[in-house]
Nucleic acid binder design. Structure first.
Lengths: 177, 177
DNA sequence: CTTACTGTACCGGCTGGACGGTCTTGTCAA
DNA sequence: TTGACAAGACCGTCCAGCCGGTACAGTAAG
């Protein structure tokens, strides 16, 4: 069974994301995270014995959230394809003004391999989408375009206005079929 | 004998990119760069008085190379638009198996603001492309798709096969008009 | 030609601070 | 009492930036 105060883990994960976002990915230290989470360093190290484990936790948390969100969207009525669900989900994710996954940069700095599960997931997702359509060209465009949207959000590049963002999404949904 | 006329600056810049790529963005230390460049720490600090200056140098070097390459492509015969030149340039850049700009992660870790010039350039580029076409929707798709391609290359995500890469590029060129 | 001076390019040891991880010492619920 | 969990002082390591040197090129007076 999980510890009695199971919320410490999640608080720490959230705190880590906050610190990376607000203080910069290079300032993600154990002390900063602990302090932000309202926990001592020892407490943090108890939940995540190593910084690597913390990064891993961040990645796993991110992936499970992503999976859930995508499944929820895909199950909604009005989506004729997983691709359109993916597009809409990503559009919403990237509409939030502030990037939420800056911690990825910290993880990469620590060890680029931390992102392997995410790459694997993306690959898996693309395979799934391939089975859904016969127009591979359009699928690839949509897939890469979403990747671009997400990366622009991650890098905090606000080169697209709100109107452009909306136009982009409707255009993508159109060619997605 | 030490090369008296050696252009250490460029050697250092190249070495920094190499170190970030091979040892990981988190291992970009001044000593590592100096050693890789065949220069002492003091020599490095002589050319770049601060780590921040080194990052800045990396960004400026990257941008000037990018500008030159784009202008060269655009000037080539057979390009009816800057957009198609941009697409082809990016396709070629991303075909190289190894990411070449991993140092960006180091720069972000140091201070996210280092990438501001790059964002500005991208914004400027988009404005330029806007003046070229009347189909804003297609332009936006191409633009973010390229962004996606580049980010996938940067993250070393090889989710697309070679054939898929080619199909994507031809599809993009088609909707680019 | 030679000696003395000046500025440039580079060297490498040092240090102060930050950070990850360990260890000892609590604390509190059952 | 006990054992899961938390606290934070402490230690070893790493690194950016500093500083006092070295080597050499140019110049120009003697």
């Amino acid at each position: 069974m999980r510890p009695r105060k199971a919320n410490s883990r999640e608080k720490i994960l959230a705190a880590a994301a906050d610190v990376a976002r607000e203080a910069g990915p290079g300032s993600l230290s154990l002390e900063a995270v602990a302090s932000r989470a309202g926990v001592s360093k020892g407490g943090l190290l108890y939940n995540f014995p190593t910084k690597a484990k913390l990064m891993q936790g961040l990645v796993e948390n991110y992936l499970s959230d992503f999976r859930k969100a995508l499944e929820a969207r895909a199950a909604e009525a009005g989506h004729e394809s997983v691709l359109s669900a993916y597009i809409k989900l990503s559009a919403d994710d990237c509409e939030r003004p502030k990037p939420s996954a800056t911690w990825m940069f910290s993880a990469i700095a620590e060890d680029p391999d931390f992102l392997t599960p995410i790459k694997a997931f993306k690959h898996q997702l693309l395979e799934r989408l391939k089975g859904e359509t016969s127009d591979l060209g359009s699928l690839l465009i949509c897939f890469v375009a979403i990747e671009g949207l997400r990366s622009m959000n991650l890098f905090d590049s606000d080169v697209l206005s709100e109107d452009e963002h909306k136009l982009l999404v409707t255009s993508l949904l159109k060619i997605a079929g």
